[in-house]
Amino acid sequence: MDICIETTPSAQQRYELRFQSLFNQGRAMVFPCNEHGQVDLDALSERARENYFYARAVIGFEYATPAVTPDYSH
């Protein structure tokens, strides 16, 4: 028996780009992204955009290299 599941936009997997703190395991900066880790900067608020650029600038100093992870918050 074949089962066919139709994928709708609401059923599509969402992802997040996670910058984990190198010094505090409970601290991270997280941004919505696609499965390739690309963040839609136009969709971010000004503050989130500033945080995103900051996290990218301090990779290796304050935050680890970001990882793309599934977003289970929805």
Rank of each mutant, 00 (worst) to 15 (best):
A28R: 08
E46M: 07
S21I: 01
M1C: 03
N34A: 04
D42S: 11
N34V: 01
L44H: 11
Q12V: 07
A64E: 15
V68I: 14
T69R: 14
L44T: 03
Q13E: 15
Q13I: 02
A57G: 12
P9N: 06
N51C: 10
Y63L: 02
P70G: 13
Q12T: 14
V68A: 08
P32F: 00
E35P: 04
P66Y: 03
G60T: 00
T65N: 09
E62N: 07
D71V: 02
E6G: 05
F31A: 05
Y72R: 13
Q25M: 06
H36L: 14
M29D: 13
D42M: 05
N51G: 12
P9A: 01
P70C: 09
P9K: 05
N24D: 15
Q20M: 04
I3F: 04
A57E: 14
Q20Y: 04
L41S: 10
A11N: 12
V30D: 13
P70L: 13
A57W: 03
L44N: 10
T7E: 14
E35R: 09
G26I: 00
G37N: 10
I5M: 09
L44E: 14
F19M: 05
F53R: 13
L41E: 15
F19D: 08
D2I: 01
R49I: 01
D40K: 02
M1N: 04
N24P: 00
P70W: 12
N51A: 11
D40W: 02
P70I: 01
I3N: 06
N51W: 06
E62K: 06
A28W: 08
R49K: 06
E16Q: 15
A55L: 01
L22D: 07
S73L: 12
